[in-house]
Design a protein around this nucleic acid. Structure first.
Lengths: 155, 155
DNA sequence: GGCTTGCTTGGAGTGCACTCCAACTCAGTA
DNA sequence: TACTGAGTTGGAGTGCACTCCAAGCAAGCC
């Protein structure tokens, strides 16, 4: 297998890349599914499934029928991966992708969708911070009352 | 229905409360399932299910057989709710509860479990922060290219 | 007394997001 | 040319965490 350029992904450039002029080198297919799985943290199964349900446009194929992902696919995946990782339901991701597909007149809807997700992300951050404090408190407690101690804690 | 004292929950005092001397007012049963559901954010269904699978000790009952939760139950629930909210699998929560049940000689194991969870919480915090930056970037982009604009964005 | 609302049960059902299966084909190396 | 490992498909299966159901009991209010 020819050595492929290492994959690097900038999640900022996602979705929109779809609207780029087609001579953009961005859209040259070159990455096999295994590479993409390793780079994105999604399994090959999941990558195929995302394509099947329409989260990704049909991916280009090699002459023998194997998938070859372009950098544009990769950056979309990177962004979608972030959305998933932070808890956006697949159905909402699909809606976002459909808005991108629909064209430039959907900017407002896309923004709204992202703004809503941002609010959820902030809520999660708050929950996690609060829990972190509780965990620190209890871990400290357990550290100071090491195992098998006879004394009981009162908090 | 008699007005019950408003429920306030301090998640720090959880699990351990189980080892308190029984004269502690903490263990007086008084809260109906509906109240507890409202206060904890868990549904009544879920509260019964948690009890069924052993996350909660069998809850005290009124003479007519309805559940009456004590403050000790509540504070355990508050802590368990935090663990769930921050992504701990129910199976791990169950393990934690079983360690609490097993007695004081399990402090080290409990601490280890919480330390592991804390690491996951920190990882999530990092993921969320990184995604927040991406969301801010894209939302800003969409805001500056309001809907139906003719120009295309290039990032 | 009648009404409404809330609670009870065990077991079955739901929704989400994958994840696997079987039976292939294909690519690269010795 | 044989072998190994990676890729292909649609449909079925899995795991998790609830969530609901039906039928009935109980409590508070007019």
């Amino acid at each position: 297998m020819a050595m492929l350029a290492p994959i690097s992904i900038d999640p900022r450039g996602c979705g929109e890349a779809y609207n780029r002029p087609s001579q953009d080198p961005d859209r040259t297919p070159r990455h096999a599914i295994g590479e993409v799985a390793a780079a994105s943290g999604l399994s090959a199964h999941t990558l195929r499934w995302y394509e099947r349900i329409g989260l990704l446009e049909p991916v280009d194929r090699s002459y023998s029928g194997q998938r070859r992902y372009s950098d544009a696919d990769l950056s979309r995946l990177a962004f979608l991966g972030r959305l998933r990782l932070t808890g956006m339901p697949v159905a909402d991701m699909l809606r976002y992708v459909e808005l991108v597909r629909a064209g430039d007149h959907t900017y407002d809807d896309r923004r709204e969708l992202l703004v809503e997700h941002r609010a959820e992300v902030r809520q999660r951050l708050a929950d996690l911070h609060a829990t972190l404090a509780v965990l620190d408190y209890k871990i400290d407690l357990y550290s100071r009352l090491p195992d098998a101690g006879e004394q009981k804690e009162s908090a």
